[in-house]
C-alpha cells in the first residue's frame, strides 16, 4: 500500500512538473533566428562559390544540414572559428581543396581593352559591374566582393584582381609590417652641415 502511494505521489509530481515545464516551454519560448540565417550572417557574402555552392546562402543551408564548416577561403580562420562557436562543431583548418586564404582583392577592368561583351556582368553575383553591350564596363569597387567569378568568363582577359590598398584611416596598427629603413647617418638628413654643433646647455636638464 505504502509503495503504491509512493509511486502515485511520485507519478503525480512528475506529471505536475511535466505540465509546468511544458507550459513554460510554450509560454516563455525564445524566438531565435533560424540556424541558416545565423550561419549566413557569419559568412563573408562574397558569393564566390569556392565552397562548391552557388553563393553564401546555399552554403549556409548546407552547413545547417551537416556539411563541413571549413570550406570558405574568403572568410578564413576567423569565419571557421565563428561557425565553430555557433554550431558547436570542431574548428578544422581551412580545406585546401576549396582554396587558400588570401588578402582581400578587388576586380579591376582595364577599360581600354574591354570589348563590351557583358559576360562579366552576367557572372557578377552582386551586380557590381556596370556597362552594356558594346559599351565599356567598369567595376564599382566599393561593391565588389573580390569573388573572382568575373575573371574566367572574360574573353579578352582584361580583368585583374588587385589587392585592396590600405588607407591610413583603415590601418590596423601593424607596426611590425613597417619596413625598417637602414640609412647612412649622413644621408638621413641631406642638408645637415658637417661643422660640429655647439652643445646646448638645456640638454643637461
Amino acid at each position: 500500500m505504502s509503495i503504491l502511494s509512493g509511486i502515485l505521489v511520485l507519478a503525480g509530481l512528475a506529471l505536475l512538473f511535466g505540465l509546468i515545464l511544458g507550459f513554460a516551454a510554450i509560454r516563455f519560448k525564445v524566438e531565435s533566428d533560424p540556424l541558416v540565417d545565423q550561419i549566413d550572417e557569419i559568412l563573408p557574402q562574397t558569393q564566390c562559390g569556392q565552397c562548391g555552392y552557388p553563393g553564401c546562402r546555399p552554403y549556409a543551408e548546407a552547413i545547417a544540414n551537416g556539411d563541413d564548416i571549413n570550406k570558405c577561403p574568403p572568410g578564413g580562420e576567423a569565419t571557421i572559428q565563428k561557425l565553430s562557436d555557433l554550431t558547436g562543431r570542431e574548428a578544422k583548418p581551412l580545406d585546401a581543396a576549396h582554396g587558400v586564404e588570401d588578402v582581400k582583392k578587388v576586380a579591376y577592368i582595364r577599360e581600354d581593352e574591354c570589348i563590351g561583351c557583358t559576360k562579366c556582368i552576367q557572372a557578377c553575383p552582386v551586380d557590381a559591374i556596370m556597362g552594356a553591350n558594346r559599351q565599356m564596363h567598369t567595376v564599382i569597387a566599393d561593391e565588389c566582393t573580390g569573388c573572382d567569378l568575373c575573371v574566367e568568363p572574360c574573353p579578352v582577359d582584361c580583368i585583374d584582381m588587385l589587392p585592396v590598398t590600405t588607407k591610413p584611416e583603415r590601418w590596423r596598427w601593424q607596426l611590425d609590417s613597417i619596413p625598417v629603413t637602414v640609412v647612412d647617418a649622413t644621408q638621413a638628413l641631406p642638408e645637415q652641415k658637417a661643422e660640429p654643433k655647439e652643445e646646448h646647455s638645456g640638454s643637461q636638464v
Binding site: W173, L175, I178, V180, T181, V182, V183, D184, A185, A188
Partner: peptide
C-alpha cells in the same frame, strides 16, 4: 643607422 619603431 636605422629608425626605431615603437608604439606610444
Amino acid at each position: 643607422m636605422s629608425f626605431y619603431i615603437a608604439s606610444s
